[in-house]
Design a protein around this nucleic acid. Structure first.
Lengths: 281, 281
DNA sequence: TATGGATTGGAATTATTATTTCATATTACC
DNA sequence: GGTAATATGAAATAATAATTCCAATCCATA
């Protein structure tokens, strides 16, 4: 008997999808129902599930048996396990995954780790965002003529996404990145009527800090996204946000920073279109 | 009888904590267990839970009755409902937030929306990742001499983070981005001993697709991250991943793509150091 | 320290639920 | 179109689990 019983939901899902074609009508019907309503399978009784799926309880059991389980009960365990997994707190999972990855537990653990790190970061920031700072930052950026976006190295992807989004929203912006070393000149054009979004995390890229210093001395207001109040960026900034990103395998997640950056960008876009509408009226 | 039965987990929890003092010893024991191990209550049988908590099944029922339920079964429903809520909530919340933001419900809603979109995407991908494809992609990339990273526009931030991480891991890589229009030359150097990570989502940037086509015709294997099997990228790729990112306010999250990209990168780094260690031994 | 009330343990009972069985229907193949 | 194999429905049965009940124990109070 080659019949290997799926022990986790993903394997089960894959097995079902694979055999989909070769299943008899009623069995296929319940297979579809199972993938669409996994929660119902986890909690329902054989009778209730069968009724919801429009089949007989016995069909449900045959379905389980075809998959190699010895009955509905063992099939149900897989669906229950799935719910447990999902709900176990992300922090715990992250710790476990880090340990797993340390001892070389395969590549899947690495993937799970990055997902968990991202989720943890998002969880964290959603409770932490200071709404007043957020409004201040939006106000400040909304009235800028040009928004300069400043970030190096690890933070650079965020800056490039901000620049992309600002462009889409038709907000004049300038990404300070030039590989050709023209940053000094670029910065020179910035005036107090402009504004800067600066992003930097420990270890702070010296170039980013230096450029932030210069630009703030020109009187250009800075909105900073950084990781602590001790950050050198914080002292140059008019408004700053503290974002704690979880890391995995030495690389920090960017998900919380990205979410904040996008929210800022879109909110600024919205505020601008609001006020231009008012001006016309 | 003022006895109002708690219908949701939070009320239940509050009720238990409130009465904690006045509960008899064994009942208090199971009350503590219930709050510490809510999942066990949701999934277990009266007998198994009682055993884990070190009491008799009858005590468990008395506990339920003291809280106003008519038996263990009705108490258990509350614990089960809690698990369901948790899982379904992100999609629903996202829909609600979208509606809120539509009707102009302030900037906080925009932020929440982006966080929810990111969380949804992560949730989704963590269940969907095809492990075989993942391993194939890692194997393919690990043996490449140079890894080319190809992405335009919205996907570009991901590419730049990959390039950053590959650099940190001392893996030779080349970001195909050149604003100076030297892409054709850059691509020309790629050989079948190299590999490409290509990222593109609908609407696919024509330049990205075209470059992927050219480079695959040179026999360079491509690992693609895209959004559906109909993606033009998929046809050029040796291995491809489907990532469904939720969007908010017209901007899609990058969190799932980022997590996958980072996992790929780190896994490749790990595989390389493994095999070089073997070679030395 | 005796007494009544509350609490608890453990087994008996009842209810619920999964599984099996068998008759019937459907399908695929000759 | 007939026949065997397969699939399905429905009810009977077996298993499992919740609940109840009663005796034993504990605890507070007089």
């Amino acid at each position: 008997m080659d019949e290997r019983v799926p022990r986790d939901f993903e394997t089960l899902r894959a097995t079902i999808l694979e055999r989909r074609q070769s299943l008899p009508k009623r069995i296929a019907q319940i297979a579809a129902y199972a993938l669409d309503n996994p929660d119902d399978i986890a909690f329902g009784t054989a009778a209730s599930i069968a009724a919801s799926a429009g089949v007989q309880p016995s069909t449900l059991i045959r379905f389980a048996q075809q998959l190699g389980f010895d009955g509905f009960t063992s099939l149900q365990l897989v669906f229950r396990e799935r719910l447990r997994e999902r709900n176990s707190s992300y922090d715990e999972r992250l710790a476990a995954l880090r340990a797993k990855a340390e001892e070389g537990a395969g590549h899947r653990a690495i993937f799970d780790g990055f997902v968990a790190a991202a989720s943890t970061s998002l969880n964290d920031i959603s409770g932490r965002l200071n709404e007043d700072h957020f409004e201040d930052a939006i106000a400040l950026l909304a009235k800028a003529e040009t928004i300069y976006v400043l970030a190096k190295r690890r933070s650079y992807p965020v800056a490039s996404y901000i620049a992309y989004a600002l462009g889409k929203l038709k907000i004049r912006n300038q990404l300070i990145e030039s590989a050709a070393g023209l940053n000094a000149e670029m910065i020179g054009f910035a005036s107090p009527r402009d504004a800067v979004i600066a992003i930097s995390f420990s270890p702070y890229a010296p170039a980013a800090i230096e450029e932030a210093r210069v630009i703030s001395e020109q009187g250009v207001p800075i909105v900073a996204i950084t990781d602590s109040s001790f950050s050198p960026l914080a002292q140059f900034a008019k408004v700053w946000f503290e974002v704690a990103e979880a890391d995995f395998a030495g690389f920090r997640s960017l998900s919380a920073t990205m979410a904040l950056a996008m929210a800022l960008t879109v909110a600024v876009g919205e505020k601008r279109s609001d006020s231009s509408r008012k001006r016309k009226a």
